[in-house]
């Protein structure tokens, strides 16, 4: 597994290898192995609590309009020639939010037109518009994968993600008061600072 740091710890040593296998299988199934740089999991069946802390590898770049469309400014309208449909739904949502549905038209599958009105001009820098952030989907998949790895009965859950670092905690009881201290300690053992 090409993860720089992949450690699972538990006071009951007999279950550690099983959770290494489960984490391996789940991350492979969700194609997250290449996305994660570090992962440290602590499971205590006695309390019981499951804490996963980690760091993502190189984050995927933002998808901008120029990456998949050609923008042409014409009198009274802006034409977008779509080269790839993958991000079209997200693009239409962004345009509807910004300009309203009445100004955005899609005459055919491969083109979108925005009405350019003098009092409500279209952004001249439209090409740089951020359409989607693939990291959002990646984090969603990551949390789903951690839910699958964690024991099923651990229904009290909390997670956090920021700038490539994440933690996920789950328990059958209320989460312990010293959760943030435990998380910080796990980050340190992984060679990272929270």
């Amino acid at each position: 597994m090409p993860i720089d740091h992949f450690v699972i710890e538990s006071p009951e040593a007999g279950g550690v290898q099983s959770y290494i296998d489960i984490a391996n299988d789940v991350l492979l199934d969700h194609t997250l192995v290449k996305a994660i740089a570090k992962l440290h999991i602590w499971i205590d069946p006695e309390y019981p609590i499951f804490i996963a802390v980690g760091k993502l590898g190189r984050l995927p770049p933002l998808v901008r309009l120029r990456d998949f469309a050609e923008v042409t400014f014409e009198p009274g309208k802006v034409k977008l020639g779509i080269n790839e449909e993958t991000h079209l739904a997200a693009l239409l949502n962004r345009l509807w939010e910004t300009y309203g549905k009445n100004r955005v038209e899609q005459p055919d599958r491969w083109s979108v037109e925005i009405a350019d009105e003098p009092d409500l001009p279209v952004d001249r820098n439209l090409e740089e518009l951020v359409v989607t952030d693939p990291t959002e989907g990646l984090v969603r998949d990551l949390i789903y994968a951690l839910l699958s790895i964690a024991p099923e009965g651990f229904r009290v859950r909390e997670y956090w993600y920021d700038d490539g670092k994440f933690w996920f905690a789950a328990s059958e009881n209320t989460l312990p008061d010293d959760l943030s201290g435990r998380i910080r300690a796990l980050f340190e053992r992984m060679g990272e600072q929270l």
Binding site: S10, E12, G14, G15, S18, P45
Partner: peptide, 17 residues
């Protein structure tokens, strides 16, 4: 379950649980 001849319980990885 009691209508069967026997029941196979598939439990998890920790003895404690």
């Amino acid at each position: 379950i009691n209508e069967h001849d026997c029941a196979v319980f598939l439990l998890g990885n920790f003895e404690h649980c």
